[in-house]
Simulated assay, not measured.
Amino acid sequence: MDHSRHVSRVIRRSPQAVYGYAADLSHLQEWAAGVVAGSVTVLDDTRVRASSPMGEVLITFVARNSLGVLDHTVVLPDGSKTENPMRVVKHPDGAEVIFTLRHAGRPEADVAADAAAVAADLARLAELLDG
């Protein structure tokens, strides 16, 4: 059984430009409303504490890298953790941002809502960068 769903968006900028913007944690509030719905405190180069639709969360990204990897872990208010693979890859029209939702055992309606939220976040990111 498939326990993953990929949500992606092509952005008409170089992969380096998209990655650089998305990896700058001070920009999260501008485009990631699915996980950041209010204040954001950047703790260091890889961690932020943020108000979210689920309550206060801690988000930890992998270290900046040359591969376009933006994987991150979200620690929810109840202490549970969600691992979120995310990549920026080269695309013939610029860059493609790919977010993988893990959804084993979750109701399809919840997965669909999460996928819609991620798609909206990626659309905002594209709007900001496509300019």
Score class of each variant (00 low, 15 high):
Val118Gln: 01
Glu30Val: 09
Met54Thr: 04
Tyr19His: 03
Ala33Asp: 14
Arg12Phe: 11
Ala32Asp: 11
Ala104Glu: 00
Pro92Arg: 05
Gly131Ser: 15
Val111Ser: 05
Asp2Met: 06
Val74Pro: 07
Ala32Tyr: 15
Asp121Tyr: 07
Leu58Arg: 10
Asp71Ser: 15
Pro85Trp: 01
Thr41Tyr: 06
Ala37Met: 05
Phe61Tyr: 10
Glu127Cys: 12
Lys81Trp: 06
Ala32Ser: 15
His72Gln: 12
Arg13Phe: 13
Val48Ala: 02
Asp2Ile: 05
Val18Ile: 13
Pro107Arg: 05
His6Gln: 12
Glu83Phe: 12
Val48Glu: 01
Leu122Phe: 08
Arg106Trp: 07
Leu122Met: 07
Glu83Asn: 03
Ile11Cys: 13
Val88Glu: 06
Pro85His: 02
Gly131Lys: 15
Val40Asn: 01
Thr73Ser: 14
Leu67Glu: 03
Pro15Gly: 10
Ala22Ser: 12
Gly94Tyr: 13
Tyr19Met: 08
Met86Ser: 11
Ser26Cys: 13
Ser51Met: 14
Val57Phe: 00
Gln16Met: 15
Val48Met: 03
Asp2Arg: 06
Ser39Val: 08
Val62Tyr: 00
Val62Cys: 02
Arg64Trp: 02
Asp2Pro: 08
Leu101Thr: 00
Thr73Phe: 09
Glu127Leu: 15
Val10Thr: 12
Val75His: 04
Phe99His: 13
Leu58Gly: 10
Ala104Asp: 00
Ala17Phe: 05
Ser8Thr: 09
Leu122Asn: 04
Gly38Cys: 11
Thr73Arg: 11
Leu25Pro: 01
Ala37Ile: 07
His6Ser: 15
Ser14Asp: 08
Gly105Val: 00
Val40His: 00
Ser4Phe: 09
Thr60Met: 01
